[in-house]
């Protein structure tokens, strides 16, 4: 048996097959139990990696349910590289079709929010523009668009994802009443202090933020919204350091 055949048999055994050919221990009755150490290491370490990325999902479903879910997910969509921070992009879509979690319809969107937070944490660095530069751009809004920090993303949901996320942070006691069937939009970014807050946006702010993310001019991004949305959003983006450049258009 060559080495490729051996590793293929070993891998199959990690997910339920018999121990690979040639595996032995001084006491042959112990082979299965000894092989189980590898089986447990793989399942446990990947489950913990997923839980680190999706702590609120874990808290919502409970540790045992999460571990059982992870064991199905990691076989269906295992990490494609040792960079575990890049693993889990498909977890939200998996949860959508994972029958045992169907009762929690908001769970996939919570996973989407947590995925974006992880991406924001590791996103590239970029320094903020000065307030003066923004003021100058705002003076001629039809010609200027904003470059936003690489960490900035939005998660739109027909569920109250921001409220659910906030209510399930460490130290928050569960039990408060929360109406989940209410649309919320989350703005996610990494701020100047390297924190990754989740900021609830109104519908108007979300439209404005969406346009800014797509590179629309300040004029286009604020058109159709009442001025108050931009009045809150732009200073907020400035304060957290999310405006990293001004692009001149035309």
């Amino acid at each position: 048996m060559d080495h490729a055949t051996f590793t293929t048999a070993f891998r199959a055994a990690l997910f339920g097959g018999p121990p690979p050919p040639g595996a032995f221990a001084n006491d042959p009755d112990e082979v299965e139990r000894r092989f189980a150490v590898y089986r447990n290491n793989v399942a446990h370490s990947l489950t913990r990696a997923l839980a680190c990325r999706f702590p609120v999902v874990e808290r919502l479903v409970g540790g045992d349910f999460f571990a059982a879910t992870a064991r199905v997910y990691l076989q269906e969509d295992p990490p494609a590289s040792p960079r575990l921070s890049q693993w889990g992009q498909g977890f939200a879509a998996f949860l959508e079709r994972f029958e045992p979690a169907a009762a929690l319809a908001y769970l996939p969107d919570v996973a989407r929010l947590e995925w974006q937070r992880g991406q924001a944490y590791h996103a590239a660095d970029a320094g903020p523009v000065s307030a003066e530069a923004l003021m100058q751009a705002a003076a001629d809004p039809g010609r200027h668009a904003l470059r936003l920090h690489p960490s900035v993303a939005m998660v739109r949901s027909r569920f109250a994802v921001v409220s659910i996320w906030e209510a399930n942070q460490p130290g928050q006691r569960p039990g408060g009443h929360l109406r989940a069937n209410r649309a919320e939009t989350a703005l996610v970014l990494r701020d100047r202090a390297d924190q990754v807050p989740v900021i609830a946006l109104t519908e108007e702010e979300a439209l404005c933020a969406d346009a800014l993310l797509r590179g629309a001019t300040l004029l286009a991004a604020t058109a159709g919204t009442e001025g108050s949305a931009a009045m809150r959003l732009l200073p907020l983006l400035m304060r957290v350091g999310a405006i990293t450049g001004i692009a001149e258009q035309g």
């Binding site: 080495h3 051996f6 590793t7 293929t8 070993f10 891998r11 990690l14 040639g22 590898y38 290491n41 793989v42 370490s45 990947l46 990696a49 295992p78 990490p79 494609a80 590289s81 040792p82 575990l84 693993w87």
Partner: peptide
Amino acid sequence: WSSHGGDYLNDLLPLP
């Protein structure tokens, strides 16, 4: 070894 067929298994697995 820790990867197999493009998948990363996140453990230090043994070889003969």
